[in-house]
Design a protein around this nucleic acid. Sequence first.
DNA 1: TGGTAGCACTCACCCCAAAAGAGTGCTAGA
DNA 2: TCTAGCACTCTTTTGGGGTGAGTGCTACCA
Lengths: 349, 349
Amino acid sequence: MIGLTQRDQTVLEAIITDYIETGEPVGSRTISKRGVMNVSPATIRNVMADLEEMGLLHQPHTSAGRIPTVKGLRLYLDSIMRSRQLVGSEKDRIRDALQNRPQDIAQLLRGTSRLLSQYCRQAGVVLWPKQSIASFKHIEFLRLGPFDIMVILISKDGLIHQTHIESRDEISQGELDKHSLYINELLQNVPFSRVKQRIREEMESEKALFDRLFSMALQMANHAIQYAIEDSEIYIEGKTNLLDNPEFAHVEQMRRILQAFEDKSKMIRLLDETLKASTGIQIVLGAEGELLGEWQDMSLVSAPFRRGDTPLGVLGVIGPLRMDYSRIIPIVEFTAQFLSQMLDIADEA
Amino acid sequence: MIGLTQRDQTVLEAIITDYIETGEPVGSRTISKRGVMNVSPATIRNVMADLEEMGLLHQPHTSAGRIPTVKGLRLYLDSIMRSRQLVGSEKDRIRDALQNRPQDIAQLLRGTSRLLSQYCRQAGVVLWPKQSIASFKHIEFLRLGPFDIMVILISKDGLIHQTHIESRDEISQGELDKHSLYINELLQNVPFSRVKQRIREEMESEKALFDRLFSMALQMANHAIQYAIEDSEIYIEGKTNLLDNPEFAHVEQMRRILQAFEDKSKMIRLLDETLKASTGIQIVLGAEGELLGEWQDMSLVSAPFRRGDTPLGVLGVIGPLRMDYSRIIPIVEFTAQFLSQMLDIADEA
DNA sequence: TGGTAGCACTCACCCCAAAAGAGTGCTAGA
DNA sequence: TCTAGCACTCTTTTGGGGTGAGTGCTACCA
């Protein structure tokens, strides 16, 4: 963005601020009257024409005001806007809401998502990829039918995952119980990151080589765990908040948006990207990212949370392009930070 | 409903059928032209006037056609309508959809809910109260903090429940493991209906009276199980289908409906009622039941499913008052029946 | 007495034209 | 380089007339 004078920036900022507030195209008169700079509407019009030429603004029709383009918003976010700091009471509110839900990780994450949605009046979202589960805690095999086995996997931080596998040979519950006893002992407190390796080692041990049962148990565990930790948990709360936004006042759009949410896998993929690139706060504006068709007019503010240095997951807020970023960004930032803290504590215990 | 002649019934039926199809007020001309009875519009108008006086029809404004009232719909459902039988291929479709999801109970129930929603093009719902869980299978205590304990409870049919309790004394994971070992042995395969009694017996045994640890374990288990089985699981799928109905085309209504869904407890209470009164298919029309404010213009078609003779849960379809009952009723009925069968099989295994 | 035909009447809805309002671009002047 | 003024454009609102669906009523017929 070369050649943006101070005045250009001020005008752009004023337009975006106003647009975020009202959702309507904003005209030169409005800006002039706002008094952030003492120039006449005509002058502002000139600046606006320049900004439009640069692709930062857009005019829905000849005699309407301007609205920012995605490019304009991006520029604003990157180099003009400065987020407001949260005051103590706001931080307290977040802290309270999270600390009062100590039940288990799943509830903590869902609670976080709900908190974000309520506080930002948009949809809140939390992604928790299973790989990040701390350590193996317990496995349980359950016989559903002669060949059908359900595997229940519990991680040390209390998340539960269940899978379903088929064994090649008929198998009794008694045998399964032996399997789980064996595996539980073997993997007690092993971090998931090392589970696979540990199983491989064991498979090559003498015991496994000569004991068909044990070898089978290992295979089943391997299978189930692999499947389990590839999965992700995603918590999306407060979707109906989005309906309050006038930009989604039309039934068509509303449906489009809500239907897009039904397919969680797309959402997961998107957030996963964010997690990989995780360098603090991230903002994806509709038309930019891999947010496809349905999401054109949405935007996502997200931040990773971590335990120590390893990122665990992502949380964020989804709403229309026109969001109060200066407020939402610090909220997302602080929530991520605080959730990280809480997970640290949970781990120590 | 005294004094409904055959002709009155025919007219009422014709009006309702047409209204269900089009969603518009229906006029005398339309009915006359439909040819179900060879009378002139004028005659039909007289009948309509009678029906309106009885409170079975309603006229939005002077020069509009009639739409059925809730009272009219109720009468129609109770004594005029006869549901169409499902043909073989329709039954097959339901069977296939359910049999291809053998994973676990939770998935089966969610799948059922989704099936109902897709097949009826409305929202599908399945309620599974925890009391109905077959038998105790496994319990696991997990130490989260010095006094915080997470309890994971697995039932024989593979549903998982987790609760969180606080112990009065500090407790180690080792002790907890002993507890779970003990409880697991004690309650192996005991039906939940008898778990409480079994625990009480054990508490009075010598072993528990003199062993503080064991007594504590029993108390914890009792606590957790009590809490767990009071809970209900509810699966609501396909909410966005409702948005296709022209009666919810207005944003206000749409939001009202969707927000009503966010509070699941109300839904659970309602379905619970249905379960208690469970004598086959049940239909609750908006203004009749305890469906409060938000649900005025909705209706629920539900049926219990059972294992053997004991009802396990309820499934159904939620949609606008104007639904194709003659189609939806047999679908709900058959699905409930077939789900019952599947659960029988699952239990035998 | 029950059914039918005719007719005047009532609304909701659509369409169109006119007016209002918001905002622009351009030009001339300080 | 900024400002004031003005003509112009385009959307939105408003109001009125026409249209059509549907009714209620009355008179008439089998």
